[in-house]
């Protein structure tokens, strides 16, 4: 596309870029390096992320820190029940002066989109967004408008509060490459968070450490990471086992295998490797697969969780060594 992307990044350059962004984010998000790793892997592999966690764990902060670290366009949409598709995608408005309709682009025409509390919007609006995520284009008034090559959606949702929400349908959950939970940090880290905020929010102090072009180059580089055939088999075996598990109504599809392979490549590059190792697959399996599973209601009632199920499957499958 442009000159900066014509040269492929070297492994060490890619790793340095990753480290730079991660370091920047970790100034804001303390004690979440594991989640940051995965988030950046998804970011660099072009997969969208669903952050699901209890309120106050820093979901929005993480998304904003990522956006701040990359010198790219960032928009945020607060999803509410009365949000309409046109509020997300854009709308054609009649211009009195020009005597014609002109398109006012919605917030999806951006590089990084934070869809906050996505499950509060009506299914209609959710669908509009999810379509953009899958197709990378917006169709309004019979015209199809492409979205920038760097388009990354971080959606957040709250898993405990369900009143007035519209849970995402399973088919749409599948559009997210991974679901991340941040969880609570330990006491020491939390103390450090308090201390850091004494002099204002750290988010205000960080600046961009990578350009849009840097990120696009990184995305190109991820595709060059090598994946052994043996690990492809390993990935497929894990994914296929989710289909046969007795507690599962609906297992993971081939899109899950693709996402796992692609994310594992990005994670390998994050570690400065040219090739994927089994541990990368293992590290990502739960985040990539669990949200796509539909559990049997009885199993759910009996306390089974999709994450635990994927963990069990990973423990059952013999790992290549």
């Amino acid at each position: 596309m442009d000159a900066a992307r014509s040269v492929l990044l070297s492994t060490s350059e890619a790793r340095a870029l990753f480290q730079r962004i991660a370091g920047n984010i970790e100034q804001v998000m303390r004690g979440q390096s594991a989640a940051v790793r995965k988030l950046l892997a998804a970011f660099a592999s072009g997969g969208h992320v669903l952050l699901e966690d209890t309120p106050g764990t820093g979901k929005t902060t993480l998304a904003k820190a990522l956006a701040a670290s990359v010198g790219a366009q960032f928009t945020r949409v607060q999803f509410t029940p009365d949000l309409l598709p046109s509020d997300v995608l854009g709308v054609s408005v009649f211009n009195q002066k020009e005597q014609q309709f002109e398109f006012r682009a919605g917030p999806v025409f951006t590089n990084i989109l934070l869809a906050d509390e996505i499950n509060r919007a009506s299914p209609r609006t959710q669908s509009a967004l999810l379509e953009v995520m899958a197709e990378q284009q917006v169709s309004v008034d019979g015209r199809t408008r492409p979205i920038d090559a760097l388009f990354f959606v971080i959606a957040t949702q709250n898993p405990v509060e369900f009143r007035g929400t519209y849970p995402l349908p399973e088919a749409q959950m599948d559009r997210f490459a991974m679901r991340l939970s941040l969880g609570y940090v330990d006491a020491e880290t939390e103390v450090a968070v308090l201390e850091a905020q004494d002099r204002g929010h750290p988010l205000a102090r960080i600046g961009a450490v990578a350009s849009r072009e840097d990120v696009l180059a990184l995305m190109d580089r991820v595709r060059e990471v090598r994946l052994a055939n043996e690990l492809r088999h390993y990935i497929v075996e894990i994914v296929q086992r989710t289909r046969g598990a007795p507690q599962v109504l609906l297992g993971c599809g081939p899109r899950a295998s693709l996402a796992l392979a692609h994310l594992a490549k990005a994670l390998a590059l994050f570690d400065g490797a040219d090739f994927v190792r089994p541990e990368h697959v293992q590290e990502l399996a739960e985040s990539v697969l669990a949200h796509r599973l539909v559990l049997d209601p009885q199993a759910k009632f009996a306390g089974a969780s999709a994450a635990a199920l994927v963990g069990d499957i990973v423990r059952e499958v013999r790992v290549p060594a």
Binding site: P278, R315, V317, A321
Partner: peptide, 9 residues
């Protein structure tokens, strides 16, 4: 090593 424990960890 466990059957599912990757060599690295």
């Amino acid at each position: 090593r466990g059957a599912s424990e990757a060599l690295g960890p």
